[in-house]
Design a binder for these strands. Structure first.
Length: 591
RNA sequence: GGGCCGCUAGCUCAUCGGGUAGAGCAGGGGACUUUUAAUCCCAAGGUGCCGGGUUCGAGCCCCGGGCGGCCUACCA
């Protein structure tokens, strides 16, 4: 059994190195049926098996990597994995692959012509009597999720892109050999079936299989068919498995997709142009946050991943793209929590000739439409308060931040108060501050710490009139240059959107940049460390009066999908490495 | 980053006043021509996250580490 001294092809050699599972044994199956003919040295082409398991897969446990199959030259007795273990289950499935190949059946065939999806059939044949035969032939395909083996009958439940469907397999229909082949199908395999649409005696819509084809063999077992997969870590790391077994996960990402699509439709209908701007930037501006730093080799240039979309989009408004938006990933090198992922998605919108008031209206239109399209209504579950709901029906209230501070804390404050007076207020309220903060930053700190999380629990709330000191890119209010025409939207105590009339005076903008640089020198490591000269040059060509808006897509998705954690709405959230491997060792344990 | 909690079979979970572990599903063998998480019978399946320590003896107690969750701190 072990004359694995293989034929000389390089691909074959590679396969032997990479896919020991495919070779493993076959002896145990020897008593079973015609499938077992020999081992896989009869492989006809290398390509499918090159994606063989057990390699390049960081999810393998140390045990399985060290396990007997990881070594090319193990003997048979070394190879006996514990019965029922993962290794054993994978080996049995790999043996089936080998046996199929030997029998001339490709376990990873090329394509399958599907005539109907599960939900299409469920819809079309919604009201058939039990025991019906339709005379309609269907070609269906999906992943085997359940199998009920009944002697001379087999029921398979397959799952495809939009639902599930039962396959009815009868030995009388298929004959001994082909029925036996169906019995070899494992949970998790992809199959295609051809047959008549029927209902069973119990009334279950089914395809009565005349032909069943394995479309892709699964080598790993699925999680518990009833309890599914609940370990959050595994769900995030192996999202593919999560999506296979958890309908809620699929639903969450459908909602997210609908919401994004809806935003795009709304903006497109209002004449906005979608663009893409650089992720790699020489200076990361447009927000206060620490950036990721990287390096371009050919240019020998330090670069930053963007922290916002703002500055490039406004350059485009200067360029005459008067209504412009981007839905894009931004990166902030800060903490990770249920509300923060290092990379997240924002939509930013810029609208020439409009102001912050127009942007408030646009925000309402966009989010209401997204809610309606993604959830079918305006009432959503409160993300943090079980049983409570938030009513998104517009219009939403708008309040000045100083009014909200007075209402929630009893303190009357203004950006014109002397800092000493505001320090006293902060002390009374227990709000921390730095010596070098001005009145604007102090007022904002009070709002941030004491007011924000109280907003938007019944219905969304716009807060407006933010201090200029914390709004370096916003236009000063005509009546009071210490404040700006800026708003933020709060829903469920969380900031969901931020917008303003854009600062388009290049002289004031330069002054604001220089203030930020000074703040950075004071030790504010989130402030911009450089003046973006190119952006100022653009402003000197003339930015028209412009309204701007940013909406956090992930938070919107959390709201609409009713998910309390941002990791539930990001397919592959940022996680620590699965196995810090001391052998690789080029990254120390400190960053 | 701080506090609390968790990590046991592929999955979901048990167990005990410290005496080297059980179940369901999945997997293996068998029965079954209308199942629906099919059912029934049989036999298997474990470095108890990792590393130390205490102890005659540690999955359990202690220390260190890893990963995750929740709360908290920051931005969105």
């Amino acid at each position: 059994m072990h004359e694995l001294a293989v034929e000389g092809s390089a691909v074959q050699h590679l396969l032997d190195q990479r896919a020991p599972l495919v070779r493993a044994g076959g002896g145990e199956l020897g008593t079973k049926d015609q499938l077992v003919v020999g081992h896989a040295s009869t492989l006809r082409n290398g390509r499918p098996a090159a994606q063989a398991p057990g390699r390049a897969d960081p999810n393998d446990s140390p045990a399985s990597r060290r396990g007997p199959y990881a070594v090319a030259s193990v003997s048979d007795d070394q190879r006996s994995a514990a019965a029922g273990s993962l290794d054993e289950q994978r080996r049995i499935r790999a043996d089936k692959v080998a046996a199929l190949r030997t029998a001339g059946v490709d376990p990873y065939p090329d394509r399958f012509e599907r005539s109907a999806t599960s939900s299409a059939l469920q819809t079309r044949f919604a009201s058939l009597e039990p025991g019906s035969e339709t005379g309609v032939e269907a070609r269906v395909a999906g992943r085997v999720m359940l199998r009920r083996n009944m002697g001379k009958l087999i029921f398979l439940t397959i799952q495809d892109l939009d639902g599930t469907l039962q396959l009815f397999v009868s030995k009388a229909d298929l004959g001994e050999d082909r029925f036996a082949a169906v019995a070899e199908v494992d949970l998790g395999d992809w199959v295609g079936a051809v047959g008549e649409v029927i209902t069973t005696r119990k009334g279950e819509l089914s395809v009565k299989v005349a032909e069943l084809r394995l479309l892709a063999k699964a080598l790993r077992p699925l999680p518990d068919k009833w309890r599914g997969l609940s370990d959050t870590d595994t769900r995030y790391r192996q999202r593919y498995v999560d999506l296979i077994v958890n309908e809620e996960a699929r639903q969450t990402f459908r909602v997210r997709h609908q919401a994004v699509r809806s935003l795009r439709h709304q903006l497109d209908e209002e004449g906005f142009v979608e663009v893409e701007t650089p992720v790699l930037q020489l200076e990361a501006g447009g927000a206060t946050a620490r950036p990721f730093v990287t390096h371009h080799n050919a240019l020998d240039q330090e670069m930053f991943l963007r922290i916002a979309l703002e500055l490039h989009l406004k350059r485009l408004v200067v360029g005459g793209i008067e209504r412009v938006y981007e839905i894009g990933r931004v990166f902030r090198n800060e903490g990770i929590s249920t509300r923060h992922n290092p990379e997240f998605t924002m939509v930013e919108v810029y609208w020439a000739l409009a102001n912050y008031d127009d942007m408030i209206g646009l925000t309402e239109r966009m989010i209401c439409r997204a809610a309606a399209d993604a959830t079918g209504g305006y009432v959503v579950a409160h993300p943090d308060r079980p049983g409570e709901t938030i009513d998104l029906t517009p219009p939403w209230p708008r309040r000045r931040i100083v009014e909200l501070i007075a209402e929630r804390t009893g303190e009357t404050v203004s950006v014109h108060d002397p800092v000493e007076q505001l320090h006293a207020v902060c002390d009374r309220l227990g709000v921390a501050y730095e010596d070098w903060w001005g009145s604007g930053k102090l007022v904002y700190a009070i709002f941030d710490k004491k007011v924000e999380d109280t907003l938007g629990h019944d219905r969304p709330m716009f807060a407006f009139e933010y201090p200029a000191e914390v709004s370096p890119l916003a236009k000063p209010s005509p009546a009071d240059p210490e404040n700006t025409d800026r708003f933020e939207l709060f829903i469920g105590g969380k900031e969901l959107a931020n917008g303003y009339s854009e600062l388009n005076d290049p002289v004031r903008q330069r002054a604001m940049f220089e203030m930020e640089v000074a703040a950075a020198e004071h030790g504010d490591d989130e402030a911009a460390r450089t003046v973006d000269e190119d952006y100022l040059r653009a402003l000197e060509f003339g930015l028209p009066p412009t309204g701007g808006l940013g909406v956090g897509i992930d938070r919107l998705a959390m709201l609409l999908a009713g998910q309390p954690s941002i990791r539930e709405v990001i397919l592959f959230p940022t996680l620590r490495p699965e196995q810090p491997d001391s052998d690789e060792g080029d990254e120390g344990d400190e960053g």
